[in-house]
Amino acid sequence: MSCQDWQTRLEAYVDAELSPQEREAFLAHAAQCPECATATLALAEAKRAIRRTGRRYLAPAELRSRLLTDLRQTGANKASGPYQPRLVHWPRQAMAAAALVLLAVGLFFLVSQYRRPNSLGEFADLHVANLASANPVEVVSSDRHTVKPWFQGRVPFTFDLPELQGSPFTLTGGRVTYFHQEPGAQLIFGYQRHIISAFIFRETPQLAITPTSFSDRSTSFNLQTWTQNRLRYVLVSDVNAATLGQLAELLQKN
């Protein structure tokens, strides 16, 4: 497919609507076409910006409880059933309050479960956006004693980089990145022809991700995450989980 053909498919790529084969072909093309890569990056950023802006209103609690009463009443009318009279002894407000508490607890779990793989997905986005970027690293150095000091004053924490000599990994460089308005470090490692992003952020509640490793089947990325010295580490790459684990071990040794 030519560049012109791909330009009509960029949005489908960003919306994750390409088939796995198409996606692979596109990534191969984007690796050699700065124009498509830049456009894809801008589209992905735009999509994220729209999502942030569009997710704006929460249903008022009052609407929620009114709906719940409505639903219960309709349900009760339909089934003027055996268990109804027993419940009538309870004051209506107490029942509504209890239902709300249950609902809140249920929703909390739902939301937190929904959120976790999602925030991991956002790291995969950051990783891809960076791959597509024209200048993926801001500090280009394979020397950990250059990269680490570069972050001083740029991110509100400090971290240690491992000795990579004798390991199959190389350090390419780093850049400052943001996640939920929080600055963090993104380190780029190389493994053979693959690129691995290591994100380091201060641990925040949004980042409290429980599964330690995670394969995003829709994007075929592997992720691995842990906390260390109250910092949240997230590794993202297309290398296999075992290799990612190897790098994680090196980083944890510090």
Binding site: L71, G75, L107
Partner: peptide, 17 residues
């Protein structure tokens, strides 16, 4: 009715938004 509730309540915020 309960099945409906279980399905619909998590959609409340998105629908309202």
């Amino acid at each position: 009715g309960r099945e409906f509730e279980n399905l619909a309540l998590p959609l409340l915020d998105p629908l309202y938004n």
